[in-house]
Design a protein around this nucleic acid. Structure first.
Lengths: 240, 240
DNA sequence: CCTTTAATAGTCAGTACGACTATTAAAGGG
DNA sequence: CCCTTTAATAGTCGTACTGACTATTAAAGG
């Protein structure tokens, strides 16, 4: 890998992290955006992020920046995963910047405020998050695609839920991210038939938020992958 | 993202690409390794890779390095995808290096030779590829996991096959990567029932390599995702 | 020409899934 | 207080899919 670093000149790069942080609010997918304080793209909205420091990994930098720019320091329950790295030479007008992008999911949505380099931070409905700075439109779209796909074959959906949740809340997550309605009894059957997806909270612990029959509570299971997966309804006239 | 680059000092990083290049030879998964010519880890085997140049993306750098270090210039049919970026501060003993790792698949296995910074290059059985330089053991393991998982829900397996292939060859890919035997009639049925996975070569084009009944030829289909997916047999006593 | 090898065809029972209907347990309004 | 509304949970039914097999076909090789 590093062979010949004394033979060929190697160029220094600025390395940043960018975060696509999702949560579900009022049944809608929301993304955390910050308003840029400086050029370029001053006044435009962008994904939170910032420069990597010499002593930290990209993962650590991502958590730090999230706290600094948005005040979200209580990131217990934060699911953070690398999306991919964006390295097109012209993606930043000033200089060569390589950015490691992350996708993150939060259960509830604590209010965010600006800080650090960000003029302000705000939860924005996904559909309204357009015309972002740099290539952030692309990063955001990639992140959303990835989340949607991972809901099918991992237990990732529980990362949108509080530690204890009802199957109705879990179904809401799927419906919101996929943008489709799901049959409730069938959803329930599949989730419970998938070992390691959720586990019932032992005590007759039931709790209601609102109207109907109180729902049983579940916790996230331990399974990394879902077998069988919870496939998205076939969009068009797919096979079946 | 880049807010405040004039407020906070930002550190320059060396950025490299590392490649886990897989092929199937004699029914075994092989990885392309290069022998390091210099310290650190001189004489040790490593994944091919090298420094990013100021005018190229990580993807371009990956293709270039593959050619330089291994002589694999005819990379038609090369499937290349980003794996993830490794950025632990101590992953290189000399300096701070952030590496964008790629997984690549090749149909046949043209012989590789050293070149550029690599003393030599060699196709190595995956099982024998241990004790690599830097954190390349980890990268290699991550790449293999990813490939195995993607075989389930994408048509990625065709990237290991020549442009036209038999279903037997395709099945070999699955069996090799997953390390499990599959029932031939059932495999056939599932592949053909999955729209967009493969398409029959129209002419009564059949061709034989060896003994038995000649097999029909297929080409890779256009589907990005497999619906339904081709799930791996459940390892232990999984549900079903 | 007969054996071996591999591809392809077909069968059958168990299971998963989508589309529904039915029941239960709470909240809320009159 | 009762009756309506709402949501959770239970159960049904027919189709599609899957895994485990058996059978047939078409070549190569001695």
């Amino acid at each position: 890998m590093l062979d010949g670093y004394d033979k060929h000149a190697f160029e220094p790069f600025a390395v940043t992290v960018d975060l696509a942080v999702f949560t579900i609010r009022e049944g809608t997918l929301h993304v955390l955006l910050v308003e840029r304080g400086q050029e370029p793209y001053a006044g435009r909205w962008a994904l939170p992020g910032g420069f990597l420091r010499p002593d930290e990994s990209a993962e650590r930098a991502a958590r730090r920046e999230l706290g600094e720019e948005t005040g979200l320091t209580d990131v217990t329950g934060l699911h953070l995963e690398q999306l991919r790295t964006y390295s097109e030479p012209d993606r930043d007008p000033r200089m060569r910047v390589v950015s490691v992008a992350f996708a993150a999911l939060l259960p509830d949505a604590p209010e965010a405020h600006g800080g650090g380099d960000a003029a302000q931070a705000r939860w924005t409905p996904y559909e309204a998050a357009r015309d972002l700075a740099f290539d952030h439109d692309r990063i955001l779209a990639d992140a959303r695609d990835r989340i949607g796909a991972k809901l099918e074959y991992t237990g990732l959906a529980t990362a949108f839920c509080p530690p204890e949740f009802t199957l109705g809340e879990l179904q809401q997550v799927y419906e919101t991210v996929w943008g489709t309605a799901l049959d409730r009894p069938n959803f329930r059957r599949k989730v419970l038939a998938t070992p390691g997806f959720v586990e019932a909270v032992p005590g007759a612990a039931r709790l209601t938020g609102g109207r109907g029959k109180p729902a049983a509570l579940y916790r996230a299971g331990t399974a990394a992958a879902l077998h069988p997966p919870l496939l998205r309804p076939t969009p068009e006239g797919r096979p079946a």
